[in-house]
Every structure is written in structure tokens, then in C-alpha cells.
Design a binder for these strands. Structure first.
Lengths: 271, 271
DNA sequence: CGCGTGCTTGATTTTACTCAAACACTGTGG
DNA sequence: CCACAGTGTTTGAGTAAAATCAAGCACGCG
């Protein structure tokens, strides 16, 4: 509200120097792939500061006015969509380098709640300024489009998970996807800490907490994982992968069309 | 590949005059909200032509190189994501005025198949030219961002549907959403034709074709619908709406956190 | 040390899937 | 024009997967 809110390159606390050029998250964030000159433009032109969000607090809530996007700098978030009746569904988890708030562009209002699952910090990026800078820095424009595109494609993956997989496959796919993302950020591929509760994980996977719990227990019994509450050790990643691939063989679930006429000579009339 | 492919404002057949300014779909398409001057820029600068896609044919397939987005001009499409093992999941249905291909921006390759469910025509928009024009026409940039944002938010709605709803709720939500979209295009709110098969609808809704069929039959028995194959008449839209709202009441499915301490004195132990 | 939350485990029920058969609509050829 | 094949849809019976209900356990915190 005050002048501090618009101060160039300062954190919410007034400390200076939120610069993309210095940030180790750059390769996976908004200014990925920019040249040094372009980075300098971003540093000087794009008003950006940091905001702290304590564990359990909301970065924003559905219905809040949208005018900024946020880049997670540290910590971990969930996004949650709620029905008018109070039923909730976790739509995703966001970690460092990932952008939050893109769903608000269309209507100018956020469509989901974004809640920190641990003490977190985000870079605050005013959207209109981002758009203005995009018009001058094509590679920033391209990167922003890529990020939105990835979010769309990622949604398709979740739809596939929710629409076509069994409980075990969903949990396996989730763990592999999460470790993949952690790995690109320099974390171990075999050890991870689940920042979300079983309820939240179940909500995201379209399962109850009991089913999530049972599945993790079963994976441990089968030697795929070592589970200690929120600490997970991936003992057999190939086994998890296999579980997903195996499950998707024909017959497991529905086929939309049986691959007809792969031979060729008989021309498919097709309608 | 030949010069025709790059011809300004011509259809694939060579007929001239694919102009957004003349198009009745404009309000819901890429150039929504543009001023007459801006529209003229789009008409003259944005190379766009039409492509016909016969029923059953693919506009593109997963893995195809991405370099254009498509705006549906007539007809109806499904987008399908497939696992390496051949299992398929419909991720959405696209009708006139909606944009297809946005999932390909990130990797430069399409992530889904786009298949015409009836004889269709699309406007072909080279993506690099769209980006270039966006840099000069801010309201085009904004509209494109809105479209991508809407696709992301729409993905959240589908996740909610797949993750938190029962079969009946899913079918009801789908029908209401479909009629809503048709209505904005000037079609009846109470009569519609399902362009997709029961298998395809089931795939999208995470159900089997039998469950879809049974649900429609039940809705008809309850006086909510009149079903004649692909012809659907919505007899009681409020009833369908009620079905969705009712189902999302607490207790129906999981709550992430019980709205604690609304009363105050008597704390609900809840467990 | 005791309480509370979150997690695990078990028993039972419900939902939707699978398998199977019959029916209906479409388009084709006699 | 009608018989027929083929696909897509409906309906039924039985089964499997996951939800629900219900305890009990473990970890973290004051």
C-alpha cells in the first residue's frame, strides 16, 4: 500500500537486492535462458520483492484480486480449489523456482487458494510490468509462455493420473514425479520428505488418506520404499516405474479405439 | 510446404480472406477485445489460413513438432493423452472459438493428439508470428495470456471433477459445463448433441462407457434429461446443479481441514 | 508426562468396473 | 426398399477397488 510496496528491488522488509541475475533458481524460473544483458533489464525494470509466508498461511485465496504472479523462492506450497459447498481438492504442489498465480489472469481473480506447507518466501512479480517487459524482451516472453504451457501440459498428466490409474499407480507416479522435480533442483533422487499430510496427498491423488497410507505401507512391504512418516526413501525406482507402465497395458483400462488397419491396403472409410 | 503455405490470408485451398475482423467467433477467440485498428493489424500481419480436418482425422499427434496454434473455426475436437503403453485419456473437448495446441509451446512438441470428432475447420496461426504481434499489440498479448490462464484454470476444474466427484456428479457437471459453452456460442441451453461417443465421454470423466450410459439412463428416469442416443435434452437444469452442490456437502468426501472454532466454546474434538 | 494431531491398521460397505448379452442405429449392398 | 453387418449403446449379474467406519498407535509439542 505504502511506498515500500513499490520500492525497486527491495524485499517486503525493506532489505535491497532481489535480483534474478544473482539467483540460483534462475535456470528453472521466469528468467531462464536470458542473456546477461536481458537479465540486467529484468533486474532493473521488473519491480520484484520478496514476501514471507509462514507455514499454514495463504499466499492468496480464491476470489482475491489478481495483479501479481509469484515465484517460489524457498519453501513449499499447495494450491487448492474449493466448491461453494466447502469441498476441497488439492490441484498441485509448488516448490522453489515454480510460478504461482497463473490461474488468475483470465478473470482478474484467483481461482484457487495457495497455502504454504512450510515457512516460505516468494518473489512478487507485478503482472502488468511483467507483460510490459515481455514486449521488450522476447526471450522473457517465450519463457513465460513456456511456463504457462507446461502448467497446461502438467494438468493433462494429472488428468491422466486421476482418470486412468489405480491407487498404487497414482502414488507411484506421484513419487517419481516429485523426485524428478526435486532432482532438477539438486536434491537426492532417492530420499525425500513429504511436506504435505496424507490428507493433502490423498486429495491431490483423488484418494482417501487411508488408501494413501495403505499403499505406502504396501510399497514398503514390497521393498519399493522405506517409509518413516514423512521421510521416504525410494529403494527401487525401477520397480515403481514398472508399476506404472505395467498398469497401462491394454486391458487394464479402457481403449478409445482398437488400432485398426495398421496393414494399409484396406483404406479406412472412416465415416 | 510450398508457397501456398505461407500465402497471406488465404485458406489452404487458396481461397482468400481469412480475416479476424469478419469472423463472428471473434468475441471468444484470440482477437477478443481488440480495437478496430488493432484488428486491422492482426488481419494484415498475422499470417493465418484455414485447414480442413475430416471427422476422425488428427489435426496433430503427440510428438509432432509444434510451431502453430490452431483456433477451431467450425466442428469439434477431442484432445487425447496417451501413455507409452497405449492407454489413452481424453483431456478435453474443443469447439468453435477455442484454441488448440497450447501444450506444445514448452517442449516444441505436442503432448496430446487432437482429433476431429466431426468435419471441422481450424484457423492456423504460426506461433512465432503470434508472439511477434503480441509484442506490438498489448491487448492481443493480454488476450493470449487470458486464454492460457483459462486453460490452466479449466484443468483445475477437471481435476476437481475427477478427484472429488462421484459418477453422477461428474456427468451432471459435464453436461452443465458443455451447455454453458454452447450457450455462449448462441446454441440452446436445453438441447445439445453429444459429438463424442460414450467411450470418449467416459474417458474424459474417468468412467467406463457403461457407467456413463447407466448414469444418463438414471437421469432420464429421474426426469433430469431426455436422452435419445447423442441427442440430449436438459429437462431440469436446476436439478442437475443441485446434484453437484448437494454432493459437495461436508461428509460427502474428504475435508482438508475442519473449519475449526466457528462456535468457540465447545471445541469439536472431531476424532 | 499427557494431550492432540496425524497416521496406521482392520472390518465392512459402497461404488463403479468387468464380463456378458442383447438391442438400436447407420450405412451398405442386394 | 429391405436385409444385414458393424459399430455403438443399453442393460444385467457378479466382482474388485477403494471409501467409509472404527479403533488403536506414534510422534511432536507444551
Amino acid at each position: 500500500m505504502g511506498p515500500a510496496r513499490r520500492a525497486r528491488n527491495s524485499t517486503g522488509d525493506g532489505s535491497p537486492g532481489v535480483q534474478c541475475s544473482n539467483c540460483h533458481l534462475r535456470p528453472s524460473c521466469l528468467p531462464a535462458g536470458l542473456s546477461p544483458e536481458e537479465l540486467e533489464q529484468v533486474d532493473s525494470r521488473l519491480v520484484s520483492w520478496r514476501r514471507k509466508v509462514a507455514r499454514g498461511e495463504a499466499l492468496f485465496r480464491a476470489g482475491d484480486r489478481f495483479d501479481t504472479v509469484f515465484a517460489v523462492w524457498s519453501g513449499f506450497f499447495k494450491t487448492v480449489i474449493s466448491s461453494t459447498q466447502g469441498c476441497e481438492q488439492v490441484t498441485g504442489f509448488r516448490m522453489a523456482g515454480e510460478v504461482i498465480g497463473l490461474d488468475g489472469i483470465e478473470t482478474g481473480r484467483h481461482r484457487v487458494d495457495a497455502v504454504a506447507l512450510e515457512n516460505s518466501q516468494v518473489c512478487v512479480v507485478p503482472f502488468s510490468e511483467l507483460e510490459a517487459l515481455e514486449r521488450e524482451v522476447p526471450s522473457l516472453q517465450r519463457q513465460f509462455h513456456k511456463i504457462m504451457s507446461q502448467r497446461i501440459a502438467c494438468g493433462y498428466d494429472v488428468m491422466f493420473l486421476l482418470g486412468s490409474m489405480y491407487a498404487e499407480e497414482r502414488v507411484a507416479a506421484f513419487l517419481l514425479e516429485l523426485t524428478r522435480r526435486l532432482q532438477t533442483r539438486g536434491f537426492s533422487a532417492s530420499r525425500l520428505v513429504l511436506r504435505m499430510s496424507r490428507v493433502e496427498l490423498g486429495s491431490f491423488l483423488g484418494l482417501t488418506l487411508e488408501t494413501v497410507s495403505r499403499t505406502l505401507t504396501k510399497f514398503q512391504a514390497n521393498g519399493l520404499l522405506v517409509v518413516q512418516q514423512k521421510q521416504i526413501q525410494i529403494a527401487d525406482p525401477a520397480g515403481l516405474r514398472q508399476l506404472i507402465d505395467r498398469a497401462q497395458l491394454p486391458g487394464s483400462r479402457q481403449q478409445l479405439h482398437e488400432a485398426h488397419a495398421s496393414t494399409g491396403s484396406i483404406a479406412p472409410s472412416s465415416g
